[in-house]
Design a binder for these strands. Structure first.
Length: 220
DNA sequence: ATCCCGAGGG
DNA sequence: CCCTCTGGAT
C-alpha cells in the first residue's frame, strides 16, 4: 500500500470532520453557565476530572450564593468547599474559584479576558479550559485544545505523524491539516467520540462510523 | 479497578 | 518525565 499523499490525507481529514459534524451536530458544552462567561470559567474549572453532570449539580447553589465575580472574590473558601464538596478535587477547586474571581475583579475589571494567554493566568485555567471558554462564551477560535482524547484519536487516525509526540506538536499539525473554520468543534466532538466509540483501552471498532477512514481500524 | 471533556508543581 | 489533588459513577 503506497504512502498516503498530503492531498489525500487532507481529503480524508475533511471527510472525518464532516462525519463528526453529522454525528455530533450540536457542538455546545453541557455545562450550565447562563450565558455568563465568568460562570463558564468556573464551571469548566470545576469539571476537571469530573463529569459535567456532577458540576451541574453544584453550580446552582454556587451562583445563588455568589451571583457576581465580586461576590465570589470575597467568599470564604471553606464555604465554597462546602458547596462543591460532592465533586472531585474540591479543596483545590474551591481555592482556585475564589482566586479566579479575585483576579478577574482586580486585573480585568470584573470581565473575563478574551485572550488565551490572559485566561491561562487564572489559577486552575489551563490551555484546555481557556480554549473552551473562548470558543463557547465568545465564539473565538484560536486553536484546538489537545487533551488525551484528541491526542489519541489524531494518532490512531494517522492524521498526524509519529513525530507529533506532544500535545503541542499535535495541535500544530492539526492546525495545518484543517482549515480554520473547522477548528472550533474538533475538541468537543472528538472527546465525545473518544468516550463513546474510540475508547482508549477498548475501542468499539465494530460500530465506528469512521471505520473505513481509519488506518488503525480493528474491525475484521 | 478504572475512569471522568485537567492543572500545577517538582 | 513524574506526582498530587479528590469524589462519584460504572
Amino acid at each position: 500500500m503506497p504512502r498516503e499523499t498530503v492531498a489525500a490525507k487532507r481529503e480524508r481529514a475533511i471527510e472525518i470532520a464532516r462525519r463528526m459534524n453529522e454525528r455530533y451536530p450540536k457542538a455546545e458544552c453541557a455545562l450550565h453557565y447562563d450565558g455568563e462567561p465568568f460562570r463558564l470559567v468556573i464551571a469548566v474549572l470545576l469539571s476537571a476530572q469530573t463529569t459535567d453532570k456532577g458540576v451541574n449539580k453544584v453550580t446552582p447553589a454556587l451562583w445563588k450564593r455568589y451571583p457576581t465575580p465580586a461576590d465570589l472574590a470575597s467568599a470564604d473558601v471553606t464555604d465554597v468547599e462546602e458547596i462543591i464538596r460532592a465533586i472531585g478535587f474540591y479543596r483545590t477547586k474551591a481555592a482556585n474559584c475564589v482566586k479566579c474571581a479575585q483576579l478577574v475583579v482586580s486585573e480585568y475589571g470584573g470581565e473575563v479576558p478574551r485572550d488565551i494567554d490572559e485566561l491561562q493566568k487564572l489559577p486552575g485555567v489551563g490551555r484546555k479550559t481557556a480554549n473552551v471558554v473562548l470558543n463557547e462564551a465568545f465564539g473565538i477560535v484560536e486553536g484546538i485544545a489537545v487533551d488525551t482524547h484528541v491526542f489519541r484519536i489524531a494518532h490512531k487516525l494517522k492524521l498526524v505523524g509519529p513525530s507529533a509526540d506532544t500535545p503541542a506538536k499535535t495541535e500544530t499539525a492539526l492546525l495545518k491539516l484543517y482549515p480554520r473554520d473547522l477548528w472550533g468543534p474538533i475538541n468537543h466532538q472528538w472527546v465525545l467520540f473518544g468516550r463513546e466509540t474510540c475508547i482508549a483501552r477498548r475501542p468499539k471498532c465494530e460500530e465506528c462510523f469512521l471505520a473505513d477512514l481509519c488506518p488503525s481500524c480493528g474491525k475484521k
